[in-house]
């Protein structure tokens, strides 16, 4: 186990190194730099732009810039954001809680609905419940996320039950702690619905198909023959087998916990990381780009690691083969 973890961490180091060098090179290849936009503003003199370029080190070749960045990154200094003039980590930390909160609620929403529904649909195969849920799943899967967001936004604008966008109300900081929590929840409903709906249908279908596969296995027949109660067979034996692929997908879902969702953030005006990262890509605010990419890489590796550990926990076969 320990050697497995060590191997993973070494490969993470290599991965981060290659990804960072690639991203830096690509950023350098793309035309213009952070100061391009300022250079066509009549009120900013050219000599000032040149001075800023020197201050940011943008006049140096890309590999020198990269080496300076690596040297600082090793001491956990990931540079300053050029547009906000504050350390990149501070900037990301401002947006992290909201992104994390929304990722958690939408993941919770998806898992807690999709898994029971999938199981139910598999057990009651071809019943009216199975048919309607399959029909609804096909519909929601084929609606693009942005359309769903706009449709829900329209409905809410007409009825006025939920707030349009944002994470908190204007008077949030003057509310009592309980009201604050309720205020968060009230604002999280809409983005969670939008992010979750598409995920539910996909995950539900996977769960249903898997569950049905295992229901036909020999061990189920044996268990029935042994006279085990139906509930034990389904939830103790079939479920543990059927959930494996979902645990793998959990690893990927974990990696997206901190990446934010550009679409929901833009349409529903949610204060997450997605827009910040997108803007810094567009403006070539390079250290913010670097930090966000390295962060999602690390999250991906950790997510997979977590999924592997969980798999080993649910599936004894993996444990024994690892030995």
């Amino acid at each position: 186990m320990i050697s497995f973890l060590i191997r993973r961490f070494i490969s993470l180091g290599f991965l981060l190194f290659f990804v960072s060098i690639l991203v830096f090179f690509l950023l350098w290849l793309s035309p213009g730099d952070f100061l391009a936009e300022a250079s066509i503003r009549p009120d900013i003199p050219e000599s000032f732009i040149e001075e800023m370029r020197q201050n940011y080190g943008l006049d140096k070749p890309w590999y020198i810039q990269y080496l300076i960045w690596v040297k600082n990154a090793i001491t956990l200094d990931f540079g300053h954001s050029m547009s906000y003039n504050i350390p990149v980590m501070d900037l990301i930390a401002q947006r992290l809680p909201a992104t994390f909160l929304l990722s958690c609620t939408s993941m919770l929403f998806v898992w807690s609905i999709a898994i029971p529904l999938g199981i139910l649909a598999a057990i009651k195969q071809d019943s009216w419940f199975d048919k309607t849920s399959r029909f609804l799943a096909s519909i929601t899967m084929s609606i693009p996320e942005f359309l769903l967001a706009v449709l829900l936004l329209y409905l809410i604008a007409r009825t006025g039950v939920l707030p349009i966008g944002g994470l908190t109300s204007v008077n949030h900081e003057f509310l009592s702690p309980i009201e604050k929590i309720l205020d968060y929840l009230h604002h999280l409903i809409l983005p969670t619905l939008v992010l979750g709906t598409v995920g539910i249908s996909g995950m539900m279908r996977v769960m249903r198909a898997n569950f049905m596969d295992y229901m036909r296995e020999d061990f189920v027949r044996t268990a029935r023959a042994k006279g085990l109660p139906e509930g034990t067979i389904m939830f103790k034996h079939v479920l543990r087998n059927a959930i494996n692929p979902l645990i793998t997908s959990f690893g990927f879902a974990f990696s997206s916990l901190l990446s934010g969702s550009l679409l929901v953030e833009k349409v529903l005006n949610f204060p997450g990381l997605g827009l910040l990262i997108f803007d810094s890509f567009m403006k070539e605010d390079q250290y913010v780009v670097m930090a966000s990419i390295l962060m999602s890489c690390t999250m991906l590796v950790f997510g997979n690691l977590l999924a592997d550990i969980l798999l080993a926990w649910t599936d004894p076969r993996i444990r024994s083969s690892a030995k």
Partner: peptide, 13 residues
């Protein structure tokens, strides 16, 4: 000042 990037969302608000 509320920060709303999308111009359609601004108009809707």
């Amino acid at each position: 000042y509320k920060f709303v990037e999308d111009s359609n969302a601004q108009t809707i608000l």
